[in-house]
């Protein structure tokens, strides 16, 4: 395939477009307004992009699949493994299952001012969860693991609310989370029945 003629064709096309763009009547005031608009848009986009690329401020976007129909056979999301767990390095992970009409486990206790990784899965339909006054918010789509990392700055009793229509009992789908001061929190005892190679 000849690249050079194609390149020339498109360069010519762009030059014509630019020349014609210059030729149409655009008022001086309109030019100024468009420039201001572009600067404002550029500022917003710039802040968001820098935050995303350099500060890691992103929405929950880990594309990870799971079989929602057989969570009970899944090592990670079997009933005994749900809730708060601390690994050897001290990372706190919260594994939660959403199903009509509650979040399981029904109640969890987590430390404030600590990085928490939530891993949410659905066992049936589409759900969503948010904790008001925090940025813990994610959709829980069947077939996918929704992972979100956050920190709760203030201790307190917070509701966890289902925010996606999941059926006629949707109103009743909620549970509580207790955030307690870091120094008062102790890691839950490790479950004796753990998933893993020796359990298979």
């Amino acid at each position: 395939m000849q690249i050079e003629p194609l390149k020339q064709k498109y360069a010519q096309l762009l030059r014509d477009f630019y020349a014609q763009l210059r030729a149409i009547h655009i008022d001086q005031l309109e030019r100024k307004w468009i420039t201001i608009s572009l600067i404002v848009i550029g500022l917003f986009v710039g802040i968001i992009t820098i935050d995303a690329l350099f500060h890691g401020v992103n929405p929950p976007s880990k594309v990870e699949t799971v079989d929602s129909a057989s969570l009970h056979l899944n090592k990670e999301f079997a009933e005994d493994n749900l809730g708060v767990q601390v690994d050897d390095k001290g990372n706190v992970t919260v594994r939660m299952v959403a199903g009509r009409y509650s979040f399981f486990p029904k109640h969890i206790t987590v430390p404030a001012e600590t990085t928490l990784t939530f891993r949410w899965v659905s066992m049936d339909v589409l759900h969503g969860v948010h904790i008001p006054m925090t940025n813990m918010s994610t959709m829980i789509v069947p077939g996918y693991v929704a992972e979100i990392t956050t920190t709760f700055p203030k201790p307190g009793e917070y509701p966890m609310l289902c925010n996606e229509y999941c059926g006629l009992g949707h109103n009743h789908m909620w549970s509580n989370i207790s955030v307690i001061a870091k120094e008062n929190w102790t890691a839950p005892a490790k479950s004796s029945v753990k998933g893993g190679s020796n359990n298979e």
Binding site: I41, I48, T49, N58, S61, K62, V63, T138, V141, E147
Partner: peptide, 20 residues
């Protein structure tokens, strides 16, 4: 789909910029 788990952050950011 910002809060959805089935799309990666790069695509979301691209669509986000287009939104502006």
């Amino acid at each position: 789909l910002y809060m959805d788990p089935e799309q990666a952050k790069g695509w979301k950011l691209l669509h986000g910029i287009g939104t502006f």
